[in-house]
Amino acid sequence: MKKLLATLGIIALLVAPISTGISAAAEDESKEDYLVMFDGPAQKGLLNAFGVDDEDILRDYDLLPVYHINLTEGQAEGLDNHPQIQHVEENADAQAFSQTEPWGIPHVEGTDSRDEGYTGEGVNVAVLDTGIDASHEDLDVAGGHSVFDDAENSDPYYDENGHGTHVAGTVAALDNDLGVVGVAPDASVYAVKVLDNSGSGSYAGIAEGIEWSIQNDMDIINMSLGGSQSSSILEEYTDLAYEEGVLVVAAAGNDGNRGGNNDSVGYPAKYDSAIAVAAVDENNQRATFSSTGPDVELSAPGVDVLSSVPGDSYDTYNGTSMASPHVAGVAAQVWAEKPELSNVELRELLQDTADELGASHQYGHGLVQSYEAIQH
């Protein structure tokens, strides 16, 4: 069939120069933008044979035998069937790839603060997690450490699981017209790998990660992880970080129920030295999975949260793991503008300026608010 159409195309070429009917019809038809590539040197005479006037030729290219042309549908079909034409394509539209702002960022006033230039610059945030994909287009990982020594898990900048990369994106995905943007895009994030590529770890590993964070001058530690069993040593390390001036932020846990009246906050979030963060949805309703109890301190977005995942990709996750980095990012924004505050004073400020949502055992002091805290 293609051969037959090609033959018809040759016939059209032969008769076009002696027939004025094609040109007249072409003038009556609407024309569209096309790119035409010849199979060999471009011949303007061939185009003229199909009724293409010089004024319809918008551009001829130098490095490839390509013309940018206005054509009628009939002219395009005829050229496409000609053996000396390699490609005939409609000129497709293109747009700049835009950046998406996940709903949680404006929800915690991260957008308002960023618009005023409050971006978390100069604040170091340690993400204790499954590592961070340092090659991701939307992340700038400042450094890191792995508590593992096996080949599979020893690289903190490799995150097969994806959890740590997602958390890091919520804290500080770059404001670069790509993908998403984090709460504090100019904060420095560090990949502290305390969970392996399957998402599992131990209290010993978390303690080592906290120790590394203290020794390497981290300002904020985010721990979107936890367990149901308390540990005096893990508590000692969490307390030590707080005593050393580090703000410790941790996910409250995903052991809540629909009634929301159980005491289910996990560790290390349950320790007094950590901010336990609960999860809410876009309507400021507690996510049913969000752990509850007297240790809940702040709330943040944790449902359908869009962020970075390995391989220059993006995905939506649910969990208090997603809520905690919103608070870490807000803390980075506020601390960058109020560096005179101690971690204790910063924590109190975040509590005082939170948007009260309801029962304290479900929401704590309420929804964390960046701009309100900065302006307070």
Rank of each mutant, 00 (worst) to 15 (best):
M1V: 09
K2N: 13
A12K: 06
I22M: 02
S23C: 13
A24P: 06
A25R: 05
M37S: 06
A42W: 12
V52Y: 01
Y61R: 13
Y67M: 09
T72K: 04
E73V: 10
A76C: 03
G78P: 03
L79C: 08
H82I: 08
P83W: 15
E89Q: 14
E90T: 09
E90F: 10
Q95G: 14
A96V: 15
E101V: 11
P102N: 00
D112M: 02
S113I: 01
Y118W: 15
Y118I: 15
N124H: 10
I132T: 00
E137M: 10
D140S: 11
A142M: 13
G144M: 06
N153C: 09
P156M: 02
G162R: 02
N176I: 13
V181D: 11
G182I: 00
S188Y: 03
A191R: 02
V194F: 01
S198R: 13
G205E: 08
I210R: 03
E211M: 09
W212Y: 14
I214E: 04
D219H: 05
S224N: 04
S230I: 15
T238S: 08
E243V: 13
E244Q: 13
L247C: 03
A250Q: 00
A252T: 00
N257R: 09
N257A: 08
N257Y: 12
G260W: 01
V265F: 15
Y267C: 09
A274C: 15
D281E: 03
D281W: 05
E282S: 10
T288W: 14
F289M: 04
G293K: 02
G302F: 10
M322S: 05
Q333I: 12
A336R: 01
E337L: 14
P339Q: 06
E340S: 12
E345N: 15
E348G: 03
L350Q: 01
A354E: 11
A354T: 13
G358H: 01
H361C: 13
Q362H: 05
Y363I: 11
G366H: 05
L367P: 01
Y371F: 13
